[in-house]
Design a protein around this nucleic acid. Structure first.
Lengths: 212, 212
DNA sequence: TTAACTATTTAGTCTACTTAAAAAATTAAA
DNA sequence: TTTAATTTTTTAAGTAGACTAAATAGTTAA
């Protein structure tokens, strides 16, 4: 088999072998997001695709590796969404505008995206420890973007010099992530409004001038 | 068997039957906090007590019920700690002082307490969905205490009237809970300092006057 | 058409939760 | 003290689900 043919084959087969793998990932993500990691048997995933459970092992080494791929896709999804929202801003945007845009992207990805993102966040805690560890590597990459934006804001003199940026970043993301627990049930606030409010709290403070 | 004897028996047996149940809970909490819920087999718990796994079923209906009891104890523990910290304050304490005291109690319970609290927080996400649901009921009771403190602060005119207290409460607790993920490795800040810093962010804001 | 390769199924192993019945230990009664 | 009743633990088997290896079916290349 010469190289040329090999390449052609690779292309056409991508819509065959890879398609099956993709179908498995899709079905698994949908079931995981609905019934959780432990609540979903490989049997269930195979059934949804009219396959036998054993067949999954041709495409994935283990249930663990399967969910890891879903987690990776979901997290990359969040990163891409946030980056896009920030890059869409005009060049001369203020520090607060940048943080608000990032917060909107973050919440948007968490709350609006599909099964991969949903599984990645909602079921993260259920996943095997080894998978969570891998996830943390990606999350670190994500958080370093936030670190960059915060450092820049402080260098510009927009954030008080006394503020510990590490604690700030963790607090802010902790607050945003908590939104997952209560949002969605048709409240009166949009995702963007919630993001603005939450950044507003920490940017301007909640105390009246009397109470400071 | 008359009532008198029955009562006496109940007393002495509390240090026998109940003792065994307590031992199981202790051993399970220790193992869960170390190896996680899924990483701990009933076999492991029984081994630690020199029993057989089947024996546990005389004291608990299931692994699920076992971890639920641990979760309940752990969460009550947090509630008690926070209430105590706030009640220890002088009567005329400021709104901010109350919130800081509550935050210190919250972080203290999460970061310093034993196996029950640790399991309740660190392994919450791994627990069966039904257990998490039960846990949410207790957490709701806890959060309503925070709601009370925040309402009072706003009524006093210490928190801006425009602030949405629900979002504030969830943000604040989300931020505090996130501390679990990074604290402990012998940092230079104490738990109380971290609590003060985090409440400070949201109380006073992080922006310089220029940037507002 | 045949040979090589790819994909799926089958059948069974292993681990861990759970259960029912038997056995052991403890307590109450005679 | 002995017997009967009750409590607690063990044993042995049942079940579910992840995983594996061998067999089979399907597809592609020569």
């Amino acid at each position: 088999m010469n190289t040329k043919i090999k390449v052609e084959k690779a292309k056409s087969e991508k819509t065959k072998v890879k398609k099956t793998k993709e179908n498995i990932l899709d079905a698994a993500a949908a079931l995981f997001s609905k019934h959780g990691y432990n609540g979903t048997a490989l049997r269930d995933i195979a059934d949804a695709l009219e396959m036998k459970a054993g067949s999954l092992y041709y495409h994935f080494d283990s249930k663990e590796q399967l969910v890891l791929e879903i987690l990776t896709i979901g997290l990359e999804n969040i990163i891409d969404t946030v980056i896009r929202r920030v890059e869409e801003l005009p060049k001369n945007s203020s520090s607060k505008e940048i943080l608000v845009a990032a917060a909107k992207g973050h919440l948007g990805a968490l709350l609006e995206k599909g099964d991969y993102t949903s599984t990645s966040i909602r079921n993260y805690g259920q996943m095997p420890v080894a998978v969570q560890k891998e996830g943390r590597i990606i999350r670190d990459r994500y958080e370093s973007m936030w670190r960059k934006w915060l450092v820049k804001a402080q260098e510009r003199g927009d954030i008080k010099a006394s503020v510990d940026l590490k604690i700030l970043r963790l607090s802010l993301l902790g607050a945003l992530n908590r939104t997952l627990a209560w949002y969605s049930k048709k409240g009166d606030l949009s995702i963007d409004e919630i993001a603005e409010i939450q950044v507003g709290f920490v940017w301007d403070g909640i105390a009246t001038s009397d109470a400071r």
